[in-house]
Design a protein around this nucleic acid. Sequence first.
DNA 1: GCAAAAGTGTTGGCACTACACCCATGA
DNA 2: TCATGGGTGTAGTGCCAACACTTTTGC
Lengths: 228, 228
Amino acid sequence: MAFEYEYARPALTVDCVVFGIDERGLEVLLIRRGLSPYKGRWALPGGYVREGESLDHAAARELEEEAGLQPRYLEQLYTFGEPKRDPRGHTVSVAYFALVNIRDHSVRAATDASDARFFVEDELPKLAFDHASIVARAKERLQGKLRYRPIGFELLPDAFPLSQLRHLYETVRGEEIDKRNFRKKILSLDLLVETDERTTGPGRPARLYRFDRGRYQELEERGFDFSL
Amino acid sequence: MAFEYEYARPALTVDCVVFGIDERGLEVLLIRRGLSPYKGRWALPGGYVREGESLDHAAARELEEEAGLQPRYLEQLYTFGEPKRDPRGHTVSVAYFALVNIRDHSVRAATDASDARFFVEDELPKLAFDHASIVARAKERLQGKLRYRPIGFELLPDAFPLSQLRHLYETVRGEEIDKRNFRKKILSLDLLVETDERTTGPGRPARLYRFDRGRYQELEERGFDFSL
DNA sequence: GCAAAAGTGTTGGCACTACACCCATGA
DNA sequence: TCATGGGTGTAGTGCCAACACTTTTGC
């Protein structure tokens, strides 16, 4: 526990799994590596943690630098430390998990990433390093957490029809959900506020709702359990 | 993402929160620091991750070295990386979460820890570094995970009466649980096997049960959800 | 026979599931 | 008027919570 006993240090990076959702389904942000190793391969955005920089900050910074992205939701996922995971030498990576509303963000490539874009989650190209297993774990977290935390809203625009929210749950869970039961349940939680806006387009217009964050925090403090 | 851009590296450690349970309640293993900083202060067992060593290995090794402990259950908890958390310089710590059956393990002090023992979780002394917040997070994990994973058994002897299991849940959740409902629920899961052994001591002898790990894995693969 | 802890059943309410038809709009 | 998606109610079932007395043992 003291510098007197110091051993060679593993290097430390962060990597981010950014999820978005659209008509094509669940999507993951990847960047194309401009440098070796794995030059030209798609990979998760990420990079070295700087001395004196917090992990959260490093994750947010890399997302900003590599894709011009400032996600509303960002949480630590898991730390991957197998010695062989990076061919350059022992590199421990703290993985992060982020949710964005895809339409809000026009992704841009930057710095050492020569390209950046979203891929449909079940059609990902072959990834660099152990990033495929990081994505797999992130998806598990998303699936699990969606059931007991209101994080799905971070993937949607501010105001949305209930059908969009339902499709989100259907996509992530990979199963159909009954329209009436879903509506009954979500409205009974008293976390959505009606707006006067409606969708346009084919079919009957749908009412739009907003998620009431303030109300959720209030309820949470009183020991309320979200669950869908 | 390449060594050409290398910055100064934060140091990397692991720290372990080891829980046990006994008549006094939930307990946490602490060691007394033999070296500065925080010399003489109680702290979580832990130490530097070695180059080429996996994180899981480092956690298990430190527990063995510092307390002679080989916990049956060990999982990664969270990674703490605030730059100021260690006065010696930026040190990122990957925290682990372990469960032991206290009676199986006679804890011994070793190496740079001059002393090691279990403390009742809500009467901990002042801890070194940010270890108090690591313990707090570990307790949340324990409370949460106990509800949907059969990990409580790791805290108990191999064969135990249902009352002991119930007390465990009561202790961790901090609330009373109805005896009949608990028995009905846990037995209906069909994960416990009766033994012919009984408790002795004051009061009517209680039948002892064992947790059937094989059966749990079988059910889990078929999409079974444990929940209590 | 008394103290201590184990063991045992029933009932009411609530939440979830399953299920099918009509409505409003744009083309 | 047709195609598209939105919006609505009910009945059955299973799970959970609440609740009090009898049994077995050691002293």
